[in-house]
Design a protein around this nucleic acid. Structure first.
Lengths: 348, 348
DNA sequence: CGACGCGATGATATCGCTATCATTCGATGG
DNA sequence: CCATCGAATGATAGCGATATCATCGCGTCG
């Protein structure tokens, strides 16, 4: 519609533009608008420095030509790429995906994008992934977990960019940190179950470093109260429903039925719940179950699942805010403990 | 460890390097290795052109200095960025995340990375997102769905890069396509339920374009067999467990209990199942349920969920293969129908 | 023995943008 | 009336890599 008005200009433009790649560049726009390239750049990035009339003129040409800025060139020249890389074990895990979603949304508002990398569960790819990611020169980094190889650590420090590690707590993060104490989770869940009067306990857990932190704290708290035998079934991460069912089966083979099991994720807990019901066990009459994560289905199982709630979107949001603050040269709080909450529902 | 051997060289190097940004560049490596920059570039990208001795020499310097190539510069010079952008409605949806995971893995093997963009459910952000993404000059694009705004369509065509649309079928994709027929899904599920002898039907569905395709086909097939009244509950996407429970409640308010409901996702179906059980209905005795997606929990609910299976990883894998083929100048099949399968389990 | 080919390497010119410093010009004030 | 200033714009020089075309030996062959 616009083009019909300025129709006669099109052929000339097309000719002027089709130099090498056939794609409109900032220089093309500048020529057509009768200004210098740097002015077009200013219209795009710092319009407050340009006269309104000039802005209008340039904007019109941009519109007409369908110019798309090249952020590679811009990033190279300014050493600001306007994107943050995030590394998570797996995107299909709701626990991470909600944080990433919040991170993405928050950064998007400020004109940043997120490049997602998945390291796989045993952190196997992290080194190579990190190298690949850093070669794209992200302005910041979002890392799941606080354990990295020496190689990665060196790389991270050498990159000299803002970094947020999440999902765990340590007094010595590489740079910044948003997390909570897995040790405290283990302790609190144990105490909560003890307080309810349960006397025989089990663990159904994935072989994950952070889960293990919780398990150790869970066991040692029980131990302090004189409950030594903890029937444990370890399944391979990433955990899923089926592994939860298997987990309970294995526990039942180990010996007498525990009265309460703590699972390393709601997904496993859900599996355990189903398996218990399939075996005719009453929950929580015969068996109490506690999950971890408070995934969206947890409140709606039958009976509803007791679990541990973490404000996952907040993790992503706060990480984004901290990164953005640093991009603006500010110095935000380096370590944030977002805490957690044990949610008692129908299965305990 | 390496550094202790070559310790004496470090200070000189450090001095040579700290020019502007303080970061090692390809030119620095070249100088230290006593070769020209282009030779270092070749060692990295086309080592088969370089003498083994030279490779070794350069590799050593790279190792020592911790050089990280700058893909922005490389991309700008070569107009190949070695990444593919993927746009999905939401990452927290298992349906998409598994395809994305497969896409990522497959592309990673060939040295490509994936930039993930989430458009949000009503496709609201797609235009702006696309503009932002295209300005990073991806080598290819992975798009969920086949409906795009005119604006987006224009942009996509102008970008002149390989594009795969997924998760639906159309004879006129923008470029390439990996999907299956939602119409056939609706028909087949309807026929399957009719064959089992059910006579009153319901739909619990999210307000999603592809779900609607299935629903329309489902209804018209039933209609052809003389079943006109379909109790329908529409919930807002993205669907979740709670919405499933609500969905069944709403259906029950509408009138007599249907004998079989078709849900637009397994998540909804799971909610429906739980709600039915909470109300003391026997499944499938009083109510049969069919989901969609065959998510990982579907086979392990109690009773196990009948649903529609799609090979989600295959979608990502095939999309990756098609893109890679195009990157190499080949011409792969443009349209791939991955099909689906109705899986009858315990809830029907 | 000179022409030729080929493997290995290099010089030079971009790629498309922005940082930095310079310039222009009209308004302002002493 | 001229120095000064600030708003608006421009000229120039990179950013860090690769494409392209040259160059240089050296072995081979007629």
């Amino acid at each position: 519609m616009e083009s019909s008005k300025s129709g006669s200009a099109i052929p000339a433009e097309a000719e002027a533009i089709r130099k090498s790649t056939g794609i409109v560049t900032l220089a093309d726009v500048a020529k057509l608008a009768g200004v210098s390239p740097i002015t077009v750049s200013r219209v795009l990035n710092r319009p407050e420095l340009v006269a309104p009339a000039t802005i209008a003129k340039v904007r019109q040409v941009i519109e007409r030509t369908g110019y798309v800025p090249n952020l590679l060139a811009g990033g190279l020249a300014s050493s600001r790429t306007r994107f943050v890389a995030a590394i998570v074990p797996a995107i299909s895990n709701q626990v991470f995906s909600e944080s990433i979603q919040a991170l993405t949304d928050r950064l998007w508002e400020s004109g940043y994008q997120v490049l997602l990398g998945t390291s796989g569960y045993p952190t196997s790819r992290e080194d190579a992934l990190l190298a690949a990611i850093l070669s794209r020169r992200p302005d910041g980094l979002f890392l799941t977990g606080i354990s990295h190889s020496d190689e990665s650590r060196r790389r991270l420090i050498a990159a000299r960019i803002p970094i947020v590690e999440v999902w765990d707590l340590t007094p010595t993060p590489i740079d910044m940190l948003v997390g909570f104490s897995h040790v405290k989770v283990g302790e609190e869940v144990a105490e909560c179950l003890i307080a309810k009067g349960y006397k025989r306990f089990g663990l159904v857990t994935a072989d994950d470093a952070r889960a293990e932190e919780r398990n150790v704290a869970f066991r040692s708290t029980l131990d302090r109260h004189g409950f030594a035998e903890i029937a444990t079934a370890v399944v391979q991460a990433p955990s899923n429903f089926r592994l939860g069912r298997e987990g309970l089966s294995r526990i039942l083979e180990l010996g007498p039925l525990p009265r309460a099991v703590f699972c390393s994720s709601d997904t496993l807990a859900h599996g355990v719940l189903m398996e218990a019901q399939a075996r005719g066990l009453s929950v929580p009459g015969d068996l109490a179950i506690v999950g971890f994560g408070d995934l969206n289905f947890a409140a709606y199982t039958f009976p509803s699942l007791s679990t541990v709630w973490i404000d996952r979107p907040a993790v992503g949001r706060m990480a984004a805010d901290m990164l953005l603050a640093r991009f603006e040269g500010k110095e935000p709080e380096k370590i944030v403990d977002v805490g957690f909450q044990v949610v008692e529902r129908g299965t305990t």
